[in-house]
């Protein structure tokens, strides 16, 4: 191999950024769509917005195969234990997007049976506002999350990741 070839074929980087680069562009979402936001999430998947452009089209309905939980819709007191179970079943590293007002704060449903924001009980990384958020908003949230993934540190995984 000529010295010139080495120059043009080898790239030095840190392992961390190489891994993060890979993760960032292949987030596998698990949509936890319960209500109206779930329908808008379908629009995010469908042809017009198409999140495949951001490498996140590999929708997995099994929490064990995914690393991004998208909570889309209101969570009732009956559903919350299920959500916690699903979050715990996802392997690390994992991220959470709270899509819509309900998932973030309870939204218009200030009643006895709606959880006032899933972040009370599970950690949330990105909040997407709106009722429902426009598909473009969800894409924006995804891009924000990718930025977050980029800055992850391996050393954090054993403790408080991504703080």
């Amino acid at each position: 191999m000529q010295p010139d070839d080495i120059k043009s074929n080898i790239l030095t980087t840190t392992l961390e950024s190489a891994v993060n680069w890979g993760r960032k562009h292949s987030l596998w979402p698990m949509p936890f769509g319960t209500a109206c936001c779930g329908i808008e999430f379908m629009a995010v998947l469908a042809a017009r917005t198409d999140i495949a452009r951001f490498g996140a089209e590999a929708i997995r309905f099994s929490p064990r195969q995914s690393d991004l939980l998208i909570v889309a819709g209101r969570i009732s007191i009956k559903m919350m234990p299920v959500l916690i179970r699903i979050y715990e079943q996802m392997p690390e590293p994992k991220w959470v997007i709270a899509m819509g007002a309900c998932a973030s704060t309870g939204g218009v449903f200030d009643t006895y049976s709606v959880i006032q924001g899933v972040d009370k009980f599970i950690p949330v990384d990105v909040y997407v506002p709106g009722c429902p958020p426009r598909p473009e908003g969800v894409v924006e949230g995804l891009i924000k999350l990718q930025k977050l993934v980029e800055t992850e540190k391996f050393s954090d995984y054993s403790t408080t990741r991504g703080k």
Partner: peptide
């Protein structure tokens, strides 16, 4: 509900 923390 129980609060779930980040990290392993």
């Amino acid at each position: 509900f129980p609060v779930v923390k980040r990290g392993i």
